[in-house]
Computed example of a mutant assay.
Amino acid sequence: MRAGTGAARLAMVEDNSAQLFNRIGHFLAEHRLSPDPRHYAFAYRVCSDETGPLAQAVASLTDGGIRLSSRDIEALGGEIGTLAVAASPENAAKKADGLVAQTQMQVDGFTDMMHAIRAETQDFGRDLAASADAIRESRDTVGIDEVVRLTGVMLGRVRSAETKLEEATHEATELRAKLEEARDNARRDPLTDLPNRRAFEEAYAEQAATGARLCVAVCDVDHFKMVNDRFGHAVGDRVLKAIGEALIKACDGHLVARYGGEEFAVLFSGVGLQVARATLEEARGTVAAKRYRLRESDEPLGAVTFSAGLTEASCEEILGTAFARADRLLYAAKHAGRNQVQTAHS
């Protein structure tokens, strides 16, 4: 009896292991990740705890059929070892921003120090030059030549130090520019090159603080999962880029962001609901009228459309309130047949 129970348990363990192995293989294939140890370890952590914080973070990041990249894995703590709630994309981005801010402060302090040292060495050099001139004019000639020689050596060293400080200051200025670029990249979507969710949130807060008239739109590609399933993620990525470009062109002067997955957000500033709706309808009509074809085979992809929810936003309310209202309007547009814009006042 015990032998039978043990065999049953062993069979159950082997079956669970086989299922886990299959899930890991499917995960790697779905995201087109090579089965190297780092990717396999990351896939194991996701698939072995499908309700855990890491799996939830991956689900949020890949919502809408977006594939994980090596950069995403690193941002989610892809190295073998730590698995914590801090592995969420939001916390990873905050950590990156903190490191950038600390480094920026160090660079600022270093540059200021370089300027101060360079000013001091220039003053010191002038004093040494004046001392050398005074010695030359002195009537006491004992040892004067040697003192002048030593002073000349010191002046040479000072000039060499100034040259090195100048080079270090230039390097620090270049590093500061690179850090600014890194900070901008942290607020930009790598696929569409649009501002990302964080940039959108920051822009809303800045505009609301000025008391500007604001409208918020949430746009979602219709049946996007069907595009990914039928034609693959590469085609889906191109569709997202095309819709992003259409929104940018129609909404010129306003902020268009990729909010996540197949979802875009538009922040209209300085216009009312009627103007914002007309602008958004122009973008919707442009996208709906275009007929996409596969680049590889010229096979028609058919019409691609998006639905949108648009609302006025009071400068006193937080983005979450306005966004939730726009999101509800978006789902109303979906239920009403898609390929349309639903609006409401704040």
Rank of each mutant, 00 (worst) to 15 (best):
M1H: 08
F21K: 15
L28A: 09
E30R: 15
H31A: 13
R38P: 01
Y44R: 08
V46L: 05
S60N: 08
D63H: 08
G65R: 09
S69W: 04
G78S: 05
E79A: 14
E79F: 07
L83K: 03
L83I: 15
A86G: 11
P89R: 10
P89W: 04
K95S: 12
G98N: 07
L99C: 08
M105N: 08
Q106P: 00
T111P: 00
R118C: 00
A119G: 03
A129H: 08
A132S: 12
R139Y: 04
V147R: 12
R149W: 05
G152F: 03
L155F: 00
A161C: 06
A168R: 05
A177M: 12
N185A: 15
R188I: 15
T192L: 12
P195V: 13
A203Y: 02
Y204R: 01
E206N: 04
H233P: 01
A242L: 05
A250Y: 01
A250F: 03
G253I: 05
H254E: 05
L255G: 03
R258A: 09
F264G: 01
F268I: 06
V271H: 11
V275A: 13
A278Y: 03
E281S: 11
R284Y: 06
Y292S: 09
V304E: 07
E316V: 12
T321D: 09
R325S: 06
V341N: 04
T343E: 09
A344N: 09
S346T: 10
